[in-house]
């Protein structure tokens, strides 16, 4: 399924765990230090550096771009480290996250409450993913280097719905199908 940002409600309503998607449009990057900064800004009553409503945040810290390149390698980082910060961002209108790995129950509950989706990109397929990034610019926290906030324009960015707005979880559903292990 091809989807575009901003991530509107009618798109989210169609997305089910396990759906493969190609994302086109503007997405934002933030990881550990970027999230910490955003939450600190919010605590001080300030606005965060981009319009979070109906947005997607991609958890990534890219490798440096070579001269003439848009970005370096840019695969997803593990998402649970952002879990402490995520519910507050979801309450502000964040609708999609791209990362890898499990999420805390409080994040899933907040996704259900706010109608948001968690997408997975293939961890370690960083050179392949970089080819779907058409534009990249740092929009805030430049001093954080790889952890700076970036605005990306992506075309056909490959992802899969890991957890949908009903809390259905692809990891859980698929793992049991292939689990034959029995402890001695």
């Amino acid at each position: 399924m091809v989807i575009t940002t901003p991530l509107k409600k009618h798109i989210i309503n169609q997305l089910k765990a396990g759906d493969k998607v190609l994302i086109t449009g503007i997405i934002y990057t933030a990881r550990d230090a970027g999230h910490k900064r955003m939450i600190e800004q919010l605590a001080k009553g300030e606005r965060i550096p981009f319009n979070i409503e109906e947005s997607i945040i991609y958890y990534v810290g890219p490798s440096p771009a070579k001269p003439g390149e848009i970005i370096g390698s840019a695969g997803p980082t593990t998402s649970y480290r952002m879990d402490d910060y995520t519910p507050e961002l979801l309450d502000l209108g964040l609708k999609g996250m791209i990362g890898k790995g499990n999420r805390h129950e409080k994040v899933i509950e907040s996704m259900k409450k706010n109608g948001a989706v968690y997408f997975g990109a293939v961890g370690g397929a960083a050179a392949l993913i970089a080819s779907s990034i058409i534009k990249a610019k740092v929009i805030a926290y430049e001093e954080l280097g790889t952890e700076a906030l970036r605005e990306l324009y992506v075309e056909n960015f490959p992802a899969i719905v890991l957890i949908d707005q009903d809390g259905k979880n692809l990891y859980e559903e698929e793992k049991v199908k292939y689990r034959t292990y029995q402890a001695d």
């Binding site: 370690g124 397929a125 050179a127």
Partner: peptide, 28 residues
């Protein structure tokens, strides 16, 4: 697993691109 086969295929493609373009296999 069909998803699994597809992912392994992407990882092999990724390794090929990284080597050809002399860029990191993974950003980490």
């Amino acid at each position: 697993s069909p998803i699994g086969i597809d992912i392994l295929d992407q990882l092999l493609q990724n390794a090929e691109i990284a080597e050809r373009k002399n860029m990191p296999i993974c950003q980490d």
